[in-house]
Design a protein around this nucleic acid. Structure first.
Lengths: 192, 192
DNA sequence: GTCTATAGGAGGATAGAC
DNA sequence: GTCTATCCTCCTATAGAC
């Protein structure tokens, strides 16, 4: 019951964060959408920052579940592509919370949030291992620092190119994902 | 005199926008940094949105000047690489204003701002022509829609990978630019 | 735990004197 | 055009009854 209500809150926060971003989202709005009073909301979560953190934890758990479900026989590079495609699908579906990359109070709350940091570390470690494996087997460019590759993959979760192409209306979500996957892994330059 | 003061204002706004973004920047702060009263600021610019628009126009003019200065004998693809490198250098130097991609009032002001829109159109047209030329001569992947390539290049101006690598402290600005240029044009996958 | 009501403060914008 | 002082709205957060 309490669990279910908090789930509903998190889902609303998640959608609003994807829609308008952290700054534009108001707590009044969250409460109204969930259908409870603002004061009740604050009984569940102590601050707006914690609301956002809870949404991020939720997304992180979904990501971990997706990683768990990837076929073990897939190559590391295929797994990486699949994760990026999944992330972009989430964003195009309006389910990827967008946080300001520069916000002191929010960053502090996130970094203090054990569940979030643990999830982030776990995902980073697993992706990092696949990146190094893919570099070792010659699929990924071994001259790139693995951390730069990891950041480049993570960055697809907040890539404005996706929304611009979606606004353009010339392509389906699947086409957009394929397009950006191509620019990400194959680059803009022609391949021999 | 008036011109010089407005230049100083724009420069301050530009730096603050690069530092903290539009939402976190306060008009009080701008006034304090410039060294005038807030009311005086509002004699020069009618709203916070117009402050940001002025900063964007300023950056757009710098971009146009950079395009003008590119050697005519350079290939289209070399010009494109140079523009992207210049953009990323601006960002790493803390001189690239960062605006929320989702903000109704700001977007409306920007779209209504003739100087900004004219500059944006001019830059887009010139880059677009180079993109199509580079696709025609086989340097860029001709299967990608030109508009997607253009967005991908523009997106380097707000790429969080740059700041993450800078925070990491393992690379100089030049190395970071080279690295991201490589992931952008050559992709993450190994080349034959 | 839910509500109504309100505190408290930040920040965009303006009044009016000089 | 610059200042001081102030308005006013919005928003986070809390008090206190039930």
């Amino acid at each position: 019951m309490l669990q279910a209500r908090e789930e509903a809150i998190i889902q609303t926060v998640n959608r609003l964060l994807a829609d308008k971003g952290f700054d534009a989202m108001t707590v009044d709005e969250v409460a109204a959408d969930v259908g409870i009073a603002k004061a009740s909301l604050y009984k569940h979560f102590p601050s707006k920052e914690d609301l956002a953190a809870a949404a991020m934890v939720s997304v992180m758990r979904r990501a971990q579940a997706f990683l768990d479900g990837l076929p073990a026989q897939d190559s590391p590079q295929d797994k990486l592509r699949a994760v990026v495609a999944w992330t972009m699908g989430l964003k195009l579906a309006g389910e990827m919370p967008s946080l300001p990359s520069q916000n002191s109070s929010l960053r502090a709350t996130l970094m203090a949030h054990k569940d979030y940091m643990d999830g982030l570390m776990d995902v980073s470690d697993r992706l990092g291992a696949w990146i190094e494996a893919a570099q070792a087997n010659g699929a990924l460019n071994a001259k790139l620092p693995a951390i730069a590759v990891l950041y480049t993959l993570f960055a697809r979760a907040c890539d404005p190119v996706l929304e611009f192409l979606k606004i353009g209306g010339q392509h389906s979500d699947e086409e957009i994902i394929a397009l950006v996957l191509s620019t990400c892994f194959d680059g803009l330059s022609a391949r021999a």
